[in-house]
Simulated scan of single mutants.
Amino acid sequence: MPRVVVFDEFGGPDVMHVVEEPVVEPAAGEVRVRIEAFAVNPLDRMMRSGTSPAIVPLPHARLGVEGTGVIDALGTETTGLRVGDPIILAAVPNASVNGSYAEYTTLPASQVVARPAGLGITEAAAIWVAYSTAYGALVEKASMRPGDHVLIAGASGGVGRAAKQIANQIGAVPIAVTRHTTRKDDLLAAGATAVIATDHEDVAEAVRRHTGGRGADIVLDMVMGPGQQDLLKAARPGGTLVAAGFLDPRPTPVPTSTPLTVFSYRSFEHTLDAVVVNRMTAFLNAGVRLGALRPAVDRVFALDDVVEAHRHLEKGLHGGKKIVVTV
């Protein structure tokens, strides 16, 4: 029978184990996907460890919000797809029940999109979460335009890397923020126009220097915590800050008396909206076709080595590149 990764208690990577389960027949409007590869995301670690903001029912919980594969079966009333079509998962809102850490998963047909031509399986498994989040935050929420100076906090992470590529594709100017000077060259190579290292520079002063004294038009904060106060000072009056991450577990002071528009953003805000998903898909397809958008893959593991893949994630040595598991 097909294999699936489950966990019966919260804890470290060792709580995960592979079991065999029968395939689930798709209901009306659903598809069954034969998974070829999936990416390991920080949300997976939070669910597995019991620190996810969403409730994860135990035992026998599943993982995985991202992956790629082919349509294996269609439920009744499912249109626009055929068995054998290569797809990527565009939304897995209930990963604890039908996550992508499996040989098969069944979900609504509206939650898959065609796999962009030109992407290999490992890249396709790693593109949707980071790029849809960065696109949704910058384009849909902040209305990023050509020429905008975009300050990216958490620029070394997966969403930060995607945000730099998306800004460049539109013609905006991505400015990366990092805590370590040693990461400057890597961030410049990943598409940043300029890099500000907070271990040697004041963020607001450096941003004014890179923007002719104006400040950033858009701030993408993937970190949160007390450091957000420095980002607010770096934005121009009338600019926009989008808080889309949670890398710093410390409380984030509530912005007060700021001349900015401040948004909180979570990717499912848009990935469950079919109209926005169509725009996201068109943008990704164009970016892949032009060579502007390309996910960076760090290491690839086999399904039997999924515990080791999570151990690698927890070491934090992947530098924002994606960890992929092939099935």
Rank of each mutant, 00 (worst) to 15 (best):
T258L: 15
V203L: 08
V223G: 08
L151Y: 09
A167C: 00
L89V: 12
V223C: 12
H17F: 07
D185I: 11
M46D: 08
K315L: 14
S143E: 10
L313W: 12
E205P: 09
P295F: 03
E9W: 05
I88L: 10
E25D: 14
I71A: 07
T182R: 07
A192P: 00
G213K: 04
V307F: 04
H318C: 03
H310L: 06
E201P: 00
A274R: 05
V150G: 00
G84H: 01
G320S: 01
V307C: 10
G160S: 09
V139L: 12
V113D: 05
A114Y: 12
D199E: 06
A153K: 06
R236D: 02
A27V: 09
H210I: 00
N98L: 12
L290H: 09
P146F: 06
T133L: 07
G50T: 06
V262P: 07
Q169Y: 08
P249L: 03
I166T: 15
A216K: 03
T281E: 06
E21R: 06
P251A: 03
R311F: 13
P251D: 06
A137L: 04
G99I: 00
K164I: 02
V223R: 11
S49M: 13
H318G: 08
L232T: 04
D148G: 13
L151Q: 00
L74E: 05
N168A: 15
G157K: 09
P249H: 07
S96C: 10
L231H: 00
D217V: 04
A197E: 13
D85I: 01
L89N: 05
V242D: 02
I170Y: 14
T193K: 10
M1Q: 03
M224H: 00
V306I: 15
V5R: 11
I35S: 01
F268Y: 13
G157W: 02
A216Y: 09
T68P: 01
R179L: 09
A114L: 07
R161F: 13
T51R: 05
P251M: 00
L317S: 14
G136T: 01
G291M: 14
L247P: 03
A134G: 14
T281C: 11
V300G: 11
M280H: 14
D72I: 08
L290W: 14
G291D: 15
A192G: 03
H270R: 13
G319L: 14
Y265A: 02
K321Y: 01
L317I: 10
V327W: 10
D298N: 15
I71T: 07
P57G: 14
L284W: 13
V275A: 11
R62E: 07
G225E: 02
G319T: 07
S110R: 15
V31A: 03
N278W: 13
Q169P: 03
G69E: 02
Y101C: 06
